[in-house]
Each structure stands twice: as structure tokens, then as C-alpha cells.
């Protein structure tokens, strides 16, 4: 029996998505920190360094740094390597802009600390319009 956890949150950009969680309590800059043609984080020293976010539910604290973030999210979308959804615990307008114009579901304000309750590889199903995130723990899959 799969162990499932339901987390509630707030819609930023609507839509449904599912995928494996790629998660860390970390800040991300899409410009400067990622290669948007391959969907890979290349920031040296990042907890995500070398990880691929394509098709994943990408969960981190917020976007830092460059204003190229929105364009790089959009490039990743056009190259077919964007995250399936993004969950942030704080909102930077640049990540929101990138998701909004690329139709990538985005959520925030979760009723649980995602960094304590979600792990890399957990399977996530989210419905941003309903504000619901279903987490199937990796260990039980």
C-alpha cells in the first residue's frame, strides 16, 4: 500500500502536473545557474549541481540573482526540458513571470514544510487550481 501524503497550498499559476520531486532547501538562479537547453543546474556548489529538472516537480526556496530567470524558464519550456511544475516557499516575481507565461503550474504557501516532508524521488501529483499536492513516498512506491 503506497504511503500518501496530502499537502495543501496556494495556486500561483494554475494547472495540473505530476512527476518526481527534485527538492532542496536552496535558492536557484535560472540564468547563470542552469543550462536551459538541457534542463541541468550547473551552478557550482548548489545542492542541485548536476541535477536535471526536466519533467520534475522542482521544489526549492526561491529564485535569486539574475532577471534572466523568466527567459530561461521559457527557453527550457520551448526546448522541452522545463520542470513539470515549480513549488517555492517564497515568491520572486521572476520565477512567477517565467511560469505564468510558459504555463508551468506553480504553487506556494504550503501547510507543511516541504523540505521536511518531501524527498528527492517522491512522486508528486499536484492540482494548482485546487491547491492540492499529493506526495507518494519513494520508499513505498
Amino acid at each position: 500500500m503506497a504511503k500518501m501524503l496530502v499537502i495543501k497550498g496556494r495556486k500561483v499559476v494554475g494547472g495540473k502536473a505530476e512527476g518526481e520531486a527534485l527538492i532542496a532547501d536552496e535558492r536557484v538562479s535560472f540564468w547563470g545557474g542552469t543550462d536551459p537547453t538541457r534542463g541541468i543546474v550547473h551552478e557550482v556548489g548548489s545542492k542541485f549541481e548536476g541535477k536535471n529538472f526536466a519533467g520534475k516537480v522542482f521544489i526549492f526556496r526561491f529564485t535569486k540573482g539574475s532577471s534572466g530567470t523568466s527567459a530561461y524558464i521559457n527557453i527550457a519550456k520551448r526546448m522541452g526540458v522545463a520542470p513539470a511544475a515549480i513549488i517555492n516557499t517564497e515568491l520572486d516575481a521572476l520565477c512567477v513571470l517565467g511560469c505564468a507565461i510558459s504555463d508551468i503550474p506553480m504553487m506556494t504557501d504550503l501547510d507543511r514544510d516541504p523540505f521536511k516532508s518531501i524527498s528527492n524521488g517522491d512522486f508528486i501529483k499536484l492540482d494548482a487550481d485546487k491547491g492540492v499536492i499529493e506526495v507518494t513516498k519513494k520508499a513505498s512506491r
Partner: peptide, 8 residues
Amino acid sequence: TNREGAES
């Protein structure tokens, strides 16, 4: 100004 990008 907010932190704006190309698309805004």
C-alpha cells in the same frame, strides 16, 4: 520597479 524580466 519590481524584478522584471524580458516577458514583462
